[in-house]
Simulated scan of single mutants.
Amino acid sequence: MNDVRNHETGWRVLVRRHPSAFLLAAQLLSLVIFPLLDDSTGGRVVFSAFGAMVLLLAVWVVNRTPAVNWIAWLIAIPAFVLSILSVASDSVPLLLWSSALEALLYFYVAASLIAYMLSDHRVTTDELFAAGATFTLLAWGFAYLYLICQAWYPDSFTGAVMPERPRTWLELLFFSFTNLSATGLGDILPLGSAARVLTMLEQLAGIGYIAVVVSRLIGLSLLRAGSR
């Protein structure tokens, strides 16, 4: 009995100390399972439910940072409802509205995590997890913006495979990751003006994030290691 209680206590301590790790793990897990669900209607439902869990985790992480928690709930609740309704009704307008709210939520949580990481001069393990989670949140947020852009402006993107068709969600997410990380593999290209503007904004966000946040965490970590 004592071993069970100690295990539960240790789990609660882990959850309390490293909330960003769970958000990062959920984002990475969704990347792993999405290729199995991408082309099926049932898969969309499952992935939408999984996305709802990620939304709840995002709100929970905001609650552990200096951000105002009710703002996150104000965005997350309608985003969750519209996301489920868009899958159930196969409605494009609902999908676009839910995508816009999800993008707003991911950017809000990312900004909150950045404020959390910049709030002091001490680097914790959770802040390192937060650095990875923030990167995925930014990539997800821009992917949703690309999805909206493609719906509003057809032929905004082209690709090496079947260049005439609209890009899938996974392709846009892949483009977002390569663009944010500045790897630029180039098999998906923005063609329209709006798509290129969004691409440039994401490139600017990626460079700024690495230059300001990640480099600061690395510098503080090296400074702490050198002072020991």
Rank of each mutant, 00 (worst) to 15 (best):
I148T: 07
R16M: 03
T136G: 02
A130D: 12
L105A: 11
R167P: 04
L57F: 08
I71H: 03
L82T: 13
L185I: 10
T65F: 01
P154T: 11
Q150Y: 10
L189G: 00
D3E: 14
V62C: 12
L56C: 06
N69Y: 08
T134W: 02
W140L: 07
A225K: 07
L56T: 10
Q203G: 15
G141E: 00
F22C: 08
D90I: 05
F135K: 06
F175G: 02
A151M: 09
L37Q: 07
A205N: 01
L180H: 04
L56W: 13
A110Q: 02
G186N: 12
M53D: 00
G51V: 03
Y209W: 09
W140F: 11
E127N: 08
S119M: 06
S83V: 06
R167A: 11
F135Q: 11
I75E: 00
L145W: 04
P190M: 08
V32E: 06
S221Y: 03
E127A: 14
E102F: 08
L36T: 13
L147Q: 12
A88E: 11
E127Q: 15
L118F: 03
Y116A: 11
T9R: 14
G10S: 13
P66T: 05
G219C: 01
A88D: 01
E202Q: 15
I218E: 01
V62N: 05
V87Y: 00
V214A: 07
V87S: 08
V87F: 03
L220R: 08
L23Q: 00
T178I: 03
R12S: 13
L85K: 05
R216Q: 06
L101G: 10
A67F: 02
A25D: 04
I75M: 14
V92T: 14
L85R: 12
F50N: 03
L105N: 07
Y106K: 11
A195E: 04
T158R: 15
L29A: 13
I71Y: 01
V212R: 05
A21Q: 06
S83K: 06
V87H: 01
L56G: 09
A79V: 09
L82I: 07
G206A: 13
A131W: 02
A133E: 10
F80I: 14
P166K: 07
L118A: 14
D3W: 07
D155Y: 05
H121E: 13
F175Q: 06
A88G: 10
R44P: 00
V109F: 03
L198T: 05
F135W: 06
A115W: 08
L104W: 06
F22T: 11
L104M: 12
A225M: 11
L128K: 03
A160D: 14
R167E: 07
L95W: 13
S40N: 05
L101H: 05
S227P: 00
S156D: 05
R167Q: 15
Y116W: 03
G219L: 09
I75V: 15
R5S: 12
L105Q: 10
G184Q: 11
Y106P: 00
G184N: 14
T158E: 14
F174E: 13
